[in-house]
Computed example of a mutant assay.
Amino acid sequence: MAKRITTQTLLAVSLAGFALAAKADLVVLQYHHVSDSTPPSTSTSVSLFEGQMEMIGELNIEVVPLESGTRDALDGKLDDRKQVAITFDDAYESVYSTAIPELEERGYPYTIFVNTDAIGSNGYMTWEQLEKVRDRSGVTIANHSEDHGHLARRPDESRNDWTQRVENSLDTAQETLADRLGIDVPMFAYPYGEFDEALERKIKERDWLGYGQQSGAIGATSGDTRLPRFPMANAYGQLNSLKDKLRSKALPVDASELPDGVIDENPPTLSFTVPDSISVDRLTCFASGQGRVDFEVSGDELTLKAPESFDSRRFRYNCTHPASDGSYYWLSQQWLDLSKPED
């Protein structure tokens, strides 16, 4: 019979039963604009960005290049080394004028994901600026599609039309980066953080790492085509919660168990096998805009479903669990409602 875990009724277990090893994983931060005058939903204020970089230094967390840090984390090679990687989507002009000088003063490496059609247009970096930063130590420039389109297959789109559209966007951008900058980096950031299983296969076929916008750290159980990053816009990057994010670890749930996130019911149901190292009374789950959500456990299977439907195109379930060193294990499942309008 399923055991229901509520905020009022928790299972009683000993402290020794929930302690997880203090092994470190890679935390990836995701930015768009770094500016006080761009849209708040995708912007990090200048003072907040400076404070975030200062906190990384205060916590003595090593800032590493994204690709090597990701591969080490996936291979379980970090041991107790705390590491963070810094990424920017879209190559906005404020990244060049504001963020990059701050990073270079601190000697922090970073990655810029480029949607190639936008380069040189109003508000974006130019090809000349990208050439300048390309040659600097610790800088990576990678693919963010040609046109920043929604790449998951649309409900009314034929498979052939989708294949042609997506392959053109992926490959044209990669070819443009090679032609203009002489680079061929095997990493891709999904526009809007949206993906489905078929799109993941396209990334896998190209032997690329694929990065989303769902929160959490990258560890040995993460999926290499659905890698998490913590969004750092003003609403999510405040310093009072940043320390927990910077020190977070991947909840040890095999990513192959998790759905691609495209929903066929609203609210959706999430199920996964609870690792032996997890005590369910220490696990807390949340749904976007709905706060803490109850879940059920039957045997070693956890099932979670929000009590209300969602109105947005993208939303998340997040689950956290304390680690033995005072940090948190983190799992974020992003959901995608293809019936809702594209941004």
Rank of each mutant, 00 (worst) to 15 (best):
N240V: 09
A220H: 10
T221F: 06
S222G: 04
D196C: 04
Y211G: 01
Y236E: 12
T225Q: 12
E197W: 03
D207H: 14
L239N: 06
A233K: 07
Q213M: 11
R206Q: 10
R226E: 09
A217F: 04
R229S: 07
R206I: 01
R229H: 03
A220K: 12
P228V: 01
G223P: 04
K204N: 14
R226Q: 11
Q213L: 11
R206H: 07
R206D: 10
D224W: 13
I218H: 06
Q238D: 13
Q213A: 13
A217S: 13
S222I: 01
N234W: 08
G210K: 06
T225P: 00
E205Y: 11
A198E: 14
S215A: 14
L227P: 06
G210V: 01
F230H: 15
G219H: 03
G219L: 03
E205K: 14
E205H: 09
L199R: 10
K202I: 00
R229N: 05
N240I: 04
M232K: 02
E197C: 01
S222D: 05
Q214M: 04
G212N: 01
K204P: 00
F230R: 10
S222E: 10
L199K: 09
W208T: 02
E205Q: 14
A235E: 12
Y236L: 15
I203K: 09
A198W: 12
L227Y: 01
D207N: 15
L199Y: 11
R226W: 01
Q214I: 00
P228S: 06
K204A: 15
R226F: 00
Q238V: 01
L239C: 00
N240E: 14
W208S: 03
Q213D: 02
F230W: 15
N240M: 03
I218M: 05
E205L: 11
S222Y: 08
